[in-house]
Design a protein around this nucleic acid. Structure first.
Lengths: 174, 174
DNA sequence: AAAAACCTACCGATCGTTCGGAAATCTTGC
DNA sequence: GCAAGATTTCCGAACGATCGGTAGGTTTTT
C-alpha cells in the first residue's frame, strides 16, 4: 500500500503479500477502509512512542527540535515510511476517522510549534510565522522520506544531518 | 483527480464533471493512464513557461531563487495545484512515461541546484549539501500547496512571503 | 470438543474500455 | 444560397475483468 497507494492496492494483493487468501485475511480485518485506519493509527502510535515521548524531557528547545527531526527521520527509515507516505491517503477514510487522524497530526505539529515558541521567548528565533514554519519543518521531514525512498547512494546519516541543519538554519537567528 | 486521487477517480466521474458520458469522453482521450500523463505533461509545460523561462534572465542567483519560489507558488495557487498534488501519482504510469515525468522534474531541480551553486561561488552559501538542499526547497514549495489547500484564513501573499523567507534563511550564510 | 484460523466458491457492483449508430458541425459542388 | 456528403462529436448499451465482501465448510490449534 505504501508502494502502490490505497486505491491501487487490492485486498487480494495484501492477502497474497502475507501468504493468505482474501477470505482468510478477512478473518483478521473488518474492511479495507478500516485496515488503512488501523495502519495510520498504528504508525502514529509509533511516532508518539518513539518521538514525542522521548523529546518531552528535553529542556532546551533547540536541542528538542533537533531531536524531533532526528528521531522522526530515524523512525521513518527503520520502519516502513508508513506515516509519511500513507498520511495523504486519509482522504479515503470516513470523515470521523479522518478527523481522528488529522487531530493527532495537529498535535504533533503543536509539538514543533511549542519548541519554536520557546525559542522565540529566548530571542533565538528569526522574525517568522511560527505556525507556517512548523509546517515547513514537518514538510522537510516527510519530504525526505518521500524523495529518498528510491534514491541511491546517499547515506541515511547524511540525510538526517542535512535535514536538521536545513531546518534549524531556517528558523534560528544569526 | 486532484481531490480524490487517480485511483479513486473513475472515468465516469471525469465525464460527469465535464458534462459528458464515458463513451463521449473516450473520443477525446486514449485511456485513463494516458490522461494522467497528459495532465502531468501539461502541468510541467506550465511550470516551464511560467517559472523556468522567466527566471532564466535573472543574473543574481539570490534574486533568482526568490523568484523561483515566488512564481512557482503563485502558479500553484492560480492554476489547479496539479503539479504539486498529481506528481506522486506518476507511479500509475508506464515506466517509460514515468521516466519522462521524472526527467523533467529533475531538470527543474537542476535549476535550483544551479542557483545554489552560484551562491556558493559567491561565498553566500552555508556549508550544506546542495543537492539535498534543493530537494528541501522543492519540498517546501509543494508542501505549502499540499497543506494549505484546505487551510483557512492565511493569505496567499503571506504564505509566499514566509516560504521565501524560510527557504532563503535555510541556505544563506549569516 | 471447542475455538480460532483459513480456504473454496461465489455475489453484486463497478471498473476501464469498446462498438455501432445518432446528432451536430463543417465542407463542398452547383 | 443551399442541398448533399463528409467529418467530428457524442451517446446507449454492452463487454470482460476485477473489485470489496460474504457464506459455509475444512483444517489447525488449544
Amino acid at each position: 500500500m505504501v508502494q502502490k497507494g490505497y486505491g491501487a492496492t487490492s485486498i487480494s494483493d495484501i492477502a497474497q503479500a502475507v501468504g493468505m487468501t482474501k477470505a482468510g485475511l478477512y478473518h483478521h480485518i473488518t474492511g479495507k477502509q478500516d485496515l488503512l485506519f488501523q495502519i495510520l493509527i498504528h504508525a502514529m502510535d509509533g511516532v508518539e512512542r518513539d518521538v514525542i515521548e522521548r523529546v518531552k524531557q528535553i529542556e532546551d528547545p533547540e536541542k528538542r527540535l533537533r531531536e524531533i527531526i532526528r528521531l522522526h527521520l530515524r523512525r521513518l527509515f527503520e520502519n516502513g515510511l508508513e506515516f509519511a507516505l500513507l498520511f495523504p491517503e486519509r482522504r479515503h477514510l470516513e470523515p470521523a476517522q479522518q478527523d481522528a487522524v488529522v487531530q493527532r497530526g495537529k498535535n504533533y505539529l503543536g509539538l514543533i510549534c511549542v519548541a519554536l515558541s520557546e525559542l522565540a521567548d529566548q530571542g533565538k528565533l528569526r522574525d517568522l510565522d511560527i505556525n507556517i514554519a512548523a509546517v515547513h519543518i514537518l514538510q522537510i521531514i516527510t519530504g525526505v522520506a518521500r524523495w529518498c525512498m528510491q534514491d541511491t547512494g546517499i547515506s541515511e546519516d547524511h540525510l538526517v544531518e542535512q535535514a536538521i541543519n536545513f531546518g534549524l538554519s531556517a528558523v534560528l537567528e544569526r
